[in-house]
């Protein structure tokens, strides 16, 4: 009988053992990479909406304050989406014939809400609250990306736990005070007024990163010192901010 296994079979056996052993790890890593990739998280992928609503047009070019439409953002957990009535406060007057606005008019006449597709979502087991972040002067763009540039709204960041934690573990890197604003809350919205009034070049480096939707660069020691002072002033409990119970309860 001819030899069934040639000597090189040993090599095959050994390599396949190694590969076989590594396979679960490889698959695991690939799955993790996939779940974090924009392909899965849909980051920066504009979402189809019933009406091509443009933040760039309304919030930047026309200079409408976020709160005109997202009324509850500074006082409640939810930012809220504007009811049809809010659109109609202007569009009963302007662009009254635009075909793009037909669904808005229909919704207003029939008293049925416009069904926007939600861009940002968290799992139900995560609690999030807008008002506390706004009260600490954290800009919308820090979390949502360059909203002032969006023709069609997209997700600026995948809200992975790790991403929330990188700030919750070291809020001093992210907190700042704009000397031109009365309060931290107000500075959040002043960023957009400033952008309209002075353009990007008239803003501080930090604000420029915000309006362009860039990641903040490694901070200078001065900024972190300012952040530390704010953490103290506002009594931010850094030790507890990364506790599981802050977001999961």
């Amino acid at each position: 009988m001819a030899q069934l296994f040639k000597p090189y079979a040993n090599v095959i056996a050994r390599t396949s053992i190694v590969i076989g052993g590594m396979l679960p790890v490889i698959v695991g890593l690939a799955a993790a990479a996939y779940s974090r990739s924009p392909y899965n998280t849909k980051v920066e992928v504009p979402l189809n909406q019933p009406i091509p609503f443009s933040h760039q047009h309304h919030a930047y070019e026309l200079g409408i304050d976020c709160r005109y439409c997202h009324t509850s953002v500074e006082k409640s957990g939810y930012a809220g989406l504007p009811p049809t009535e809010t659109c109609m406060s202007c569009h009963s007057q302007i662009w009254t014939n635009s075909p793009l606005l037909e669904p808005v008019r229909k919704s207003y006449e029939d008293n049925t809400p416009i069904q926007w597709n939600k861009v940002n979502t968290l799992p139900s087991f995560v609690n999030f609250n807008h008002s506390i972040h706004i009260a600490r002067g954290i800009n919308c763009n820090q979390c949502h990306g360059p909203v002032n540039d969006m023709q069609i709204t997209f997700k600026g960041h995948p809200f992975m736990m790790q991403w929330c934690l990188q700030c919750h573990r070291a809020p001093e890197k992210y907190l700042y005070k704009d000397p031109d604003s009365h309060s931290l809350r107000e500075q959040v919205f002043n960023v957009y007024w400033k952008l309209q009034e002075k353009g990007v070049s008239g803003m501080t480096p930090r604000e420029q990163h915000l309006v362009k939707g860039e990641e903040q660069e490694e901070d200078g020691a001065k900024d972190v010192a300012e952040g530390k002072a704010l953490v103290k002033q506002y009594g931010v409990k850094v030790q507890q901010l990364a506790d599981c119970s802050v977001c999961h309860y």
Binding site: Y78, G80, P123
Partner: peptide, 12 residues
């Protein structure tokens, strides 16, 4: 656990 039966604001 991701999509719990509670309703969140604006949910269908």
């Amino acid at each position: 656990m991701w999509i719990q039966p509670k309703t969140v604001p604006l949910e269908e």
